[in-house]
């Protein structure tokens, strides 16, 4: 009940957030001048150019143009994507699915592996597993993604040939239906092990490249908060009750150590989303990030606007989830205060 109220209250901020960010981004995309270039071609004469200007209301003042855009959005029309030469709404869902598949895969890698590494390191502080994990995670937090991704690409695709790039083998991809757009899930629905394996095989390299940095951050946070929790009196009290070390660690210390880690995981998701742009370009992943990069380079305003709207809404939801999980873990937190 209380949690539901809190979620509703937080969601009420959503419209304001969307209006605010859309105005800012709309203005920013215009700093570089008119977006008309994306719609033009060499064969067009002056009349045709004028037609385009009228079609996209480019002669009106900027606030009026914004209202045209907003009106379109409210009726489900996000405009014409010059990069894809198609309406934004036609291209967006499949790109979104591709990006989310990659982000979620690397997010799962980061959370599961990061918490595990942090627990192992924190529980065996200053012993060799801790030292190994420290080196691995410092490397993860300091290697730039673009460099690490290219190294993976060169080693595992160019030289060893163990992993492919791109998102799928087109023949296998076309052999199954795509009701959700998530290749792995579609493969499971179609009961096609061949497609599922193809999906996983393509996911591995980009997910590792993208997830490594986040894993490192989560692991380091988990380690330090676990070390801190293990010093607490209640850990000694748990031992004094006769609990085996496994339960002292898992049931008592780790649970409380997760509290600060969850906050970091929430922030890491933004980091992941940002990383998809680089990872998608390097691994030729047909997702939002690469689409967005093209759009920015070519001044495709409709595409940029759609992406930013999506990103800000997603961020709000992730933060909401983090807050709710936080309140679940730390009983002293009262939501909404």
């Amino acid at each position: 009940m209380q949690i539901r109220d809190y979620i509703l209250r937080r969601l009420m901020v959503l419209p304001l957030l969307i209006i605010g960010t859309s105005i800012i981004v709309f203005v920013l995309t215009r700093v570089g001048g008119s977006p008309i270039g994306i719609y033009l071609s060499h064969e067009m004469g002056p009349e045709q150019v004028q037609q385009i200007r009228e079609r996209f209301h480019l002669d009106d003042p900027l606030p009026v143009q914004y209202f045209y855009w907003a009106q379109g959005v409210l009726s489900g029309d996000f405009g014409w994507s010059g990069v894809s030469a198609a309406p934004v709404t036609a291209v967006f869902p499949s790109k979104l699915a591709a990006t989310m598949e990659l982000a979620i895969a690397s997010g799962i890698v980061a959370v599961v592996l990061g918490i595990w590494m942090g627990t192992v390191a924190g529980a065996r502080r200053n012993k060799w597993p801790d030292h190994v994990i420290r080196v691995v995670s410092i490397a993860g937090a300091s290697l730039p993604l673009f460099w690490f991704a290219i190294v993976l690409l060169i080693v595992f695709w160019v030289h060893l040939g163990w992993f492919p790039i791109g998102r799928s083998d087109p023949v296998i991809f076309d052999s199954i239906a795509h009701p959700t757009g998530f290749y792995t899930i579609d493969a499971l629905i179609a009961l096609s092990p061949r497609a599922f394996w193809d999906a996983i095989w393509h996911l591995i390299l980009p997910a590792i490249a993208l997830g490594y940095g986040a894993t490192a951050i989560v692991a380091r946070m988990m380690r330090s908060s676990l070390v801190e929790e293990l010093q607490e009196d209640y850990v000694e009290a748990a031992r004094a009750k006769g609990l085996p070390e496994r339960l002292v660690l898992k049931r008592h210390a780790r649970r409380n150590a997760l509290i600060p880690t969850v906050t970091v995981i929430g922030l890491t998701f933004g980091f992941l989303l940002q990383g998809t742009v680089v990872a998608e370009i390097i691994f030729r992943w047909p997702g939002l990030g690469r689409w967005m990069a093209d759009a920015v380079l070519r001044g495709d305003q409709a595409t940029i606007m759609a992406y930013v709207m999506f990103a800000s809404i997603l961020f709000l939801f992730v933060n909401l989830v983090v807050d709710v999980v936080y309140a679940y873990l730390d009983r002293r937190v009262v939501l909404g205060e």
Partner: peptide, 8 residues
Amino acid sequence: GKALNPGL
């Protein structure tokens, strides 16, 4: 206050 686990 410290010897009881705050999360249980």
